[in-house]
Design a protein around this nucleic acid. Structure first.
Lengths: 248, 248
DNA sequence: CAACAGCCTTGACCCAGATCAATACTAGGA
DNA sequence: TCCTAGTATTGATCTGGGTCAAGGCTGTTG
């Protein structure tokens, strides 16, 4: 069925983010009922590990609320975060039975899970789920490549500014906030987690945040509550060329 | 159609790597004829640019022979390679009309191209193409995440060793070489390109390669021809835990 | 063959960010 | 209320890899 024949349905279902985007109206009801049959929910407390790298993982899931991270660890303990999962992001890989990364809840977390086997069957019989998943995976790949530029070539200050910009932007998107004006949000990560994200040490993260605050580019209330008076000013520090960014 | 009903067909067609893997026999003939109708070839010389980031890109393609790179550039000229495309790798994104990265041929390159619109139509009507593409994209995402660990946390020496290991492994795969014994291959990248891959400067790349040679971990004949007497020794330097690696 | 252009190597020096260390803030819990 | 544990800040010092600079190879062109 060609794309232009599709009847667009915008579904504001907070439970199944995989269905958030436009889908074919004809398939909608059928798909919904089948999804309902195989889905279930899991909750995790802040700090809890969802799965360890290498463990059996017999489900795929999408984040309903809260934040999870994917990290890789070397034998000597060096850690690198390789994914930051916000609400509506997808975890797990169809066609693989073990986790490739440590998945950790950094805040209280609720995920909508689907047992892997039924989900895979459903993917085969419901093409647009696969298409949607492909689209999401391609977005993630773009984000990963943006992140590679950050890790490989940006200075510590640029890294911090970029991270703040990413969080601010995604946060604004979630709140459906589009108007100009100061952005206000809480950092969902500790300094150490930010360091693991950015390929820095926590001391450097702390110092650079202090510097940005000292210069008025961000305001800090406590350790986590951030106000960004001028987003463009922050983007300048981030060294980003594209301001639309990868998170459309 | 459930996976287990599929009749596996291994197709050694060098032209259309997207069809290399197992596909449903029933669809095979039909798909083949339709793919034939919309595909065409393009050749590039070493050093030539395929597309610039931001340019219109009305095709998707897969690499038939040679090597291409994806790079991102900041306004001040800092460059980071974000993709290394070897034969059978896929370029381009269905559903996007402009290139997100500079695509460059680092060796003489032949690509098998499909005009984007017909390809997208075909994806919609031939689910397993989308499935295959999803699988490839997930592999690429895994590779990108491995790469992020490298960029964020590895030392210069580990980076070089990792790159050599990746090239050696992929090269061995392409040659269907499985036996133990010294690995021999030509570096497909200049020192500068390696630096862009690894988030280093070309001087550091040169120094680390010299160091590995001095210590007998690699042998160099000329500037490009590499022999790896003991692959495990190299992996040790790379700091990799997984030796199977991400490139199945 | 010389001259040139692209690569590559090596040395000397420097600096951004790591490391080591001390201190401070905050939220529970007894 | 104090104690403790986790988290954050800041200072002092060190160092891996960047920067700048000088040659050295190798292949191509005239």
């Amino acid at each position: 069925m060609p794309m232009q024949d599709m009847h667009l349905v915008h579904h504001e279902c907070g439970d199944c983010p995989i269905r958030h985007r436009a889908v074919c109206a004809r398939c909608e009801a059928d798909e919904l009922s089948r999804l309902e049959q195989i889905k279930y929910y899991r909750s995790y407390q802040a700090g809890q590990t969802v799965v360890w790298s290498g463990d059996r993982m017999d489900f795929v899931a999408s984040v309903v609320s809260g934040i999870a991270t994917l990290t890789q660890t070397m034998e000597d303990g060096r850690r690198q975060m390789v994914g930051l999962l916000l609400p509506s992001d997808f975890v797990g890989r169809p066609g693989r039975s073990t986790a490739a990364y440590d998945v950790t809840a950094t805040t209280d977390l609720v995920m909508c899970c689907f047992r892997k086997k039924p989900f895979e069957d459903m993917m085969l019989s419901t093409p647009h789920i696969g298409q949607r998943l492909l689209e999401m995976t391609l977005d993630e790949l773009d984000a990963a490549r943006e992140w590679m530029l950050l890790l490989g070539r940006k200075t510590a200050r640029e890294k911090i500014a970029s991270l703040l910009a990413i969080i601010a932007r995604r946060d604004a998107t979630l709140k459906l906030k589009t108007a100009k004006g100061p952005l206000v949000f809480d950092l969902p990560l500790t300094r150490e987690e930010m360091a693991d994200y950015l390929g820095l040490t926590l001391e450097t993260v702390s110092r650079q945040i202090s510097a940005l605050r000292r210069e008025g580019i961000i305001l800090l209330d406590g350790k986590r509550h951030v106000t960004i008076p001028d987003f463009d000013l922050l983007l300048e520090e981030a060294g980003d060329d594209s301001d639309g960014g990868v998170l459309g």
